[in-house]
Design a protein around this nucleic acid. Structure first.
Length: 255
DNA sequence: AAGTGGCTCAACCGCATGTAG
DNA sequence: CCTACATGCGGTTGAGCCACT
């Protein structure tokens, strides 16, 4: 007994999508205000001879109106590398930090360009402001209670401290490599405040602390975004923690 | 101009997870 | 609680394109 197929493979079209199919899919989804309640039933309703999963993928990765196509910026490179160092190949999580990018896009970009860039022989092959490449962590299991940190072998080769690193990169490295003895203590700016936290997030290209902490599973329980989630003033309402306190906690926990 | 080897990226596959009944 | 089904996700494939010889 094999798996139950998600569709009748003999009667569905496969391969590249035609402009007519794209139009039919786009029309259907837009008619339903961008949400499809049942992708399996959707192709028949839209008059498409496609697998529902294929339709969903086509919409999410290509037809969605907010998709950003084209070259990745250096800032996006940095975010991808930083998050990959921390959480491994969890492309959907990484993509969620890059507005307009899909997990497939990020994955393809990593596999075809970034990985080579990082593994390149030139010591300057990576951008000067980016964290140095670390051994790729094994992808964390896709469970909600996953360990937040990369596995221990991740500690084998920490990135060198580079004076060119910004606050954000240093904090991430600090987190990623568990304060190896050779790393000097990370100094919190004396004037650290909500605005410092905002600047930190802005530097990472992350919209809210909730997004940041989403990558650090064990911090999630102490943080609950306020109703102003996504704004620069988001705070941890359940604990009344400020950005400053969260940053402090982020740096002190486990170290 | 033709051959070929590498690269890109859309699409597919199958497993994991979520959820409704 | 169990089962079946839908959805989400990461890994992989292969057609088409391009640069090089």
């Amino acid at each position: 007994m094999g798996r139950v197929p998600c569709c009748d493979k003999a009667n569905v079209k496969r391969g590249p999508w035609s402009p007519e199919e794209d139009a039919a899919l786009r029309t259907y989804v837009e008619k339903h205000h961008g949400t499809v309640s049942n992708w399996i039933a959707m192709p028949q309703k839209a008059g498409l001879r496609r697998c529902g999963k294929s339709c969903r993928l086509r919409w999410l990765n290509y037809l969605r109106p907010d998709i950003k196509h084209g070259c990745f910026t250096e800032e996006e490179d940095n975010i991808i590398c930083t998050l990959y160092n921390n959480i491994g190949s969890r492309w959907s999580v990484i993509a969620s930090n890059l507005p307009g990018r899909t997990d497939n896009d990020v994955k393809n970009y990593w596999n075809t360009k970034l990985k080579k860039k990082l593994l390149g022989t030139s010591k300057n092959s990576f951008t000067s402001s980016a964290p140095a490449p670390a051994p790729a962590p094994v992808a964390a299991p896709r469970v909600k209670t996953e360990p937040a940190h990369a596995p221990a072998d991740h500690l084998a080769a920490p990135p060198p401290l580079d004076s060119g690193f910004g606050f954000a990169e240093e904090l991430y490295n600090y987190h990623s490599y568990r304060l190896l003895p050779e790393l000097p203590p990370f100094a919190m700016p004396p004037s650290a405040s909500t605005s410092a936290g905002d600047a930190f997030l802005s530097e990472l290209g992350i919209g809210s602390f909730g997004e940041l902490l989403g990558g650090f599973g064990e911090f999630a329980p102490i943080y609950s975004p306020s109703t102003s989630h996504g704004t620069s003033n988001a705070q941890a309402t359940t604990t009344s923690l400020t950005h400053h306190e969260l940053l402090g906690g982020l740096m002190n926990l486990e170290y």
